[in-house]
Each structure stands twice: as structure tokens, then as C-alpha cells.
């Protein structure tokens, strides 16, 4: 197991390098000159000087290594729009996104796993039909639409919860800060909850049809013990889906964060794209890609722990 973890951690290094290369290339492949967007119509001499000062005149491979080198030391340059250093901006945004992402993951996974398990176990009954319909609704509903509906109900009509922003600097562990998170968390949790519920249901149904479940019954185990065995066998599949969904959540949702003007990475990315703010764009995408790589790493390790057949092969 330990050697498997070590191997798996080592594998992430080339993946991370590949990701950085892709991020860098993609952005430089996009047409348009970032500086001309900022500087506007000025004389060519000044533009060239500015290019040189940002290092944009050097060949791309050189630019890549310069960028990689400074990124690794925590220096991601300065925003072309605000002039603020990219790294702290990114960290602040990521914190906000992680806060609602983790909240949505906890809510969505709890809901998804429980309802999926119960539905699969009681498959064909009204419970199953209710859960399945809710899950279909959950995956089909655009989350920004759900966000708007939530705002209309809970902010506009009922006035219970704020509709915008993340508060004004309240301590993180306080209801004053948390009430800002409730609606974004619910809006974000719908899709993961539905997807996890569908996966768990399908997986439980598949496992229930396996012979070993009959064999467990033949041992006289209680239905509760049998459900535990079934859940334990469904875990690896459900974990894989949860990992993917969690990575999505950490990536932040441009649409949901825009609806709630939530100052997370989604919003940062959105602004950086419109402003052609290359350093911010590069930094944000790189960070999100690393989130994916890390989540995959964690999920792979968890799966190996959950399914003893994985780490041996």
C-alpha cells in the first residue's frame, strides 16, 4: 500500500508538468496581444519596450521556463489590470471558492450517497422512484438557474439570506459569514448530489444482483450488515465520481459565482478572460488544474484503500 502511494505521488509530477505546459501553450495560442489591450493605441516603440519589460519578446520556450521558475517560487507576476501581485489575489479567491466548494461537497455527497443507497436498496419502490426523479431533475437543472431561483425565493421574497457577496470581513467561523455561503452552497450542491445519487443507486443495484449477497444472506446476516457490505462494495465506484465532482467544485463555477458575486476563482477567471489579464489567467488555470491533479491523486489513494484488488495490479 505504501509503495503504491509513493508510486502514485511520483506519477503526479510529470502530469503536473504536462498540465503547466498545456496551460501555458493554450493561452499563448489565443489570438491577440495582451499588452495592446491594456496600452491601447500608442506608438510601436513604447509597446515594444513594454513587451520587453514583461518578457513577451522572448521565444515561447524561454518564456515558459521563466514563468515556471517564478511560479514555483510563488511569484506569478502582477495583474495587467490592477497591478496587484497575482499570487495573493489567487490565494484569496481560492479560499473563497474552497469554502463554498467544500460546503457543497459535504452537502451534496451526504445527500447523494444516502439517497442513492436507499434508492438502490429499495429499487422499484416509491422511494426509488422519488429519488430517481429528483436526481434527473438535479442533473438537468442548470445550476445558475437554480441559483437565481434560490435568490428570488430566499433573498427577495423571504428576505432570509443575502443574495450577493461574501460579507464584509466577519470572522470565518461565524453565522454572519456563513449566511452568505448558504445559497451558493445549495446551488452548487444540486448537481454533485444528483450525480452521486445516480451512481450510488446504479452501483448498489449491480452489487445486490451479485452472488455474494445471496451468500451473505445464507450466513444469516442481518439486513443491516448486508447493507453495510453492499455499501462497502459500492464505495470505490462512488469515490471515483465524488472525486471528479469535488475537483469541479474546487475549480469554482463562473456562473454561480457571478450570480452571487462571490469573490472566488470563477469570478477571477471570468474577469481575467475579459481583460486579457494574462498573468492572472495563467495563474488561475494552473491552480485549478493542480486542484484536479491533486484530487485525482487523493481519490486514487482512497480507492486503493477501499478496494483491496486495486493496489496489487
Amino acid at each position: 500500500m505504501l509503495s503504491y502511494i509513493l508510486r502514485r505521488v511520483l506519477y503526479t509530477i510529470p502530469i503536473a508538468i504536462g498540465v503547466s505546459l498545456v496551460v501555458f501553450t493554450l493561452i499563448h495560442l489565443a489570438p491577440g496581444d495582451p499588452l495592446s489591450a491594456v496600452v491601447g493605441e500608442v506608438d510601436q516603440k513604447m509597446l515594444a519596450e513594454m513587451r520587453a519589460s514583461f518578457g513577451y519578446d522572448k521565444p515561447l520556450p524561454v518564456q515558459y521556463f521563466l514563468w515556471l521558475g517564478s511560479t514555483l517560487t510563488g511569484d506569478m507576476g502582477y495583474s495587467l489590470r490592477t497591478g496587484a501581485p497575482v499570487f495573493p489575489t489567487l490565494i484569496a479567491a481560492a479560499k473563497n471558492t474552497i469554502a463554498i466548494g467544500v460546503g457543497a461537497a459535504i452537502l451534496g455527497f451526504l445527500l447523494g450517497v444516502l439517497s442513492g443507497l436507499v434508492a438502490g436498496y429499495n429499487h422499484g419502490t416509491w422511494i426509488d422512484k422519488t429519488v430517481s426523479s429528483a436526481a434527473i431533475a438535479g442533473v438537468s437543472m442548470p445550476h445558475y438557474w437554480l441559483a437565481i431561483i434560490l435568490v428570488i425565493i430566499f433573498s427577495v421574497h423571504l428576505g432570509w439570506l443575502p443574495s450577493v457577496g461574501s460579507g464584509s470581513g466577519e470572522a470565518f467561523w461565524s453565522w454572519a459569514a456563513w449566511r452568505h455561503m448558504v445559497l451558493p452552497v445549495v446551488a452548487l450542491a444540486a448537481i454533485p448530489a444528483a450525480i452521486v445519487a445516480r451512481t450510488a443507486r446504479a452501483s448498489v443495484m449491480e452489487i445486490l444482483s451479485m452472488e455474494f449477497v445471496e451468500a451473505l444472506r445464507a450466513r444469516g446476516l442481518s439486513e443491516r450488515r448486508i447493507l453495510w457490505h453492499v455499501a462497502r462494495n459500492a464505495l470505490p465506484t462512488v469515490l471515483a465520481v465524488m472525486g471528479l465532482q469535488f475537483a469541479h467544485l474546487l475549480g469554482g463555477s463562473i456562473l454561480v459565482e457571478t450570480v452571487f458575486t462571490w469573490p472566488g476563482t470563477g469570478q477571477l477567471l471570468n474577469m481575467a478572460i475579459f481583460d486579457r489579464d494574462m498573468p492572472v489567467l495563467q495563474g488561475t488555470i494552473m491552480l485549478l488544474a493542480l486542484f484536479f491533479v491533486l484530487t485525482n491523486l487523493v481519490v486514487d489513494i482512497l480507492q486503493a484503500w477501499a478496494d483491496p484488488r486495486i493496489s496489487r495490479s
Binding site: 451479485m210 452472488e211 455474494f212 445471496e214 451468500a215 451473505l216 444472506r217 445464507a218 450466513r219 444469516g220 446476516l221 442481518s222 439486513e223 457490505h229 462497502r232 462494495n233 464505495l235 477501499a306 478496494d307 483491496p308 484488488r309
Partner: peptide, 27 residues
Amino acid sequence: TAALARLRGPTVAMIFQEPMTALDPVF
């Protein structure tokens, strides 16, 4: 159901044809 569960194991037990599929793989 409860009485059946008490019967299975101490009174009647069963062995299956294919041990690979009749044992829980993750325990």
C-alpha cells in the same frame, strides 16, 4: 425474516459453486 436469519448459519449453511463470486471481495 428475523427467524430465517437465525436459522441460516447455526442450523443450515450453504456452500456455493463459485467461491470467487460467493465471497465478498472487499472483506
